[in-house]
Design a binder for these strands. Structure first.
Lengths: 181, 181
DNA sequence: CGCGGCTTGTGAAAATCTTCGCAAATGTAG
DNA sequence: CTACATTTGCGAAGATTTTCACAAGCCGCG
């Protein structure tokens, strides 16, 4: 497949595809293009997707539940090894084969299972505290659903999921007049 | 509040804040900084957040449910005026004061209520079809949770929510070594 | 093997974004 | 009213990203 074809699938140009890929090495064959199979394998390795990541979910509310059920996670190599919640009603409940633990045990589990990522699906008011404890316990990245800007050391990447902001981005694009992006 | 202070809240610099704001006009007072109150009002107007947006939710599964319950939506001016699902079991069920309709009625409702935005919380396999119908019916923007790249006219903005990709971004940042961003 | 149609990889040019630096405002204190 | 300590708005300089353009490599064919 040529860079031209690849570009048409993403939202970009042939030159951009080639530049981006050349950043990590030389994957194509001149006159032929790129082998999807080889690209897939090499990019997976570069992106760190060629292994299983240990994830814990904090917050067993609606968002947590929706996430946990989302089949793509397991399929893409994200293994949810534990769930935490502070509600005594929920503690001990099983979701599939995973049991909901008390938030108090967060540090212990992160350390014991060498957890990589925390998914924060808790109210804004406790997000920072949980984040601090998770980082302290050695977690290496955070996916944050709470609508607050959490502060962590620079060495710990955080990805924010902010649905209101995405709706607002839509509103702006519409207001500004037409054009998508 | 000075641009310096504003910058420290976001993830940016004083110069950047001033440039960005100057793009839309001249909001500050020299020697004093910016009035939070005035900034808030003026930016809301620019972003199109000073009105209520009519939203419909398509897909009453777990994600749809989590979204619908999310209190911030209503508070931020996004009014979910209808829910659709193709599952006959769900049709007619009430969520709060909103009833779940058959997907067949999508076009009728969009046209009748002059709906602005569609939230697509359906399986990937039907996302494109629903999007096409919504656009045809006159919707003006799409928030897409389905893990596919949907194609719409350039004049219709689409925001994708792709949680797997955000997890993968985290994985990459960790793999690449340390630094957040 | 040599030729011709393709496509990559990559410097160099063009465009865009960010930072710098400072004149012009603004308020305060004396 | 004047001197002074601030802070904006903005042109210009610097940095980064994107696009262009083309030599070099690859394949198939005769």
């Amino acid at each position: 497949m040529s860079s031209e074809q690849l570009a048409s699938h993403g939202h970009t140009t042939a030159a951009q595809v080639r530049k981006d890929l050349s950043h990590f090495g030389s994957f194509g064959k001149r006159g032929l293009g790129y082998s999807i199979e080889e690209l897939s394998v090499r990019l997976r390795a570069i992106l760190g997707l060629d292994r299983v990541w240990q994830v814990v979910l904090v917050g067993a509310g609606r968002i947590g539940s929706a996430l946990f059920e989302y089949p793509d996670f397991k399929m893409r190599g994200y293994d949810c090894v534990a769930i935490f919640d502070s509600d005594p009603e929920k503690i001990g409940v099983q979701w599939g084969t995973t049991t909901i633990h008390s938030s108090e045990r967060l540090e212990a589990v992160i350390e014991q299972l060498d957890v990589d990522l925390v998914i924060l699906a808790v109210p804004a008011s406790v997000a920072q505290e949980i984040a601090d404890r998770a980082v302290e316990a050695g977690v290496r990245g955070i996916l944050n659903f709470a609508p607050v800007q959490i502060k962590v050391p620079d060495s710990i990447p955080v990805e924010d999921v902010n649905l209101v902001m995405q709706l607002e981005a839509l509103s702006f694009k519409i207001t500004r007049g037409g054009a998508g992006e």
